[in-house]
């Protein structure tokens, strides 16, 4: 049984690599990997986000998502509030 499940998991991960969704679409409890920022994100905010640990490649946990309100994410063991607008422009791949 256990052996059979492994390929399924691998397959799922492969599929999700393709999916680029805005962070605001993630559900609470999702672990996401940041893929990048949309063009509309200002340069200063990219500086701000990166200094707080939100860089492409990093894994984040969605603690709260009060869609269409703000989110709480956990990154590098810190909790950060992100406004809905901001979360719309952070692209992630998500696995549950």
């Amino acid at each position: 049984m256990k052996v059979e499940q492994i390929p399924k998991v691998v397959e799922a991960t492969d599929n999700q690599k393709e999916a680029r969704i805005p962070l605001s679409f993630c559900r609470e409890g999702d672990v996401c990997t940041i893929l990048g920022f949309e063009q509309r994100v200002g340069r200063r905010f990219i500086q701000k986000l990166t200094s707080m640990g939100l860089v492409p490649g990093v894994e984040i946990l969605v603690v709260r998502n009060n869609f269409p309100g703000p989110l709480i994410v956990e990154v590098k063991s810190t909790r950060i509030v992100l406004g809905h607008g901001m979360a719309n422009r952070i692209l992630v791949s998500s696995k549950r």
């Binding site: 994100v41 200002g42 905010f45 701000k48 986000l49 707080m52 703000p70 709480i72 810190t78 909790r79 950060i80 509030v81 992100l82 406004g83 607008g85 901001m86």
Partner: peptide
Amino acid sequence: GKPSPFVMEMPP
């Protein structure tokens, strides 16, 4: 126009 982006740390 729209409010500026919102990012803030939540201390434990």
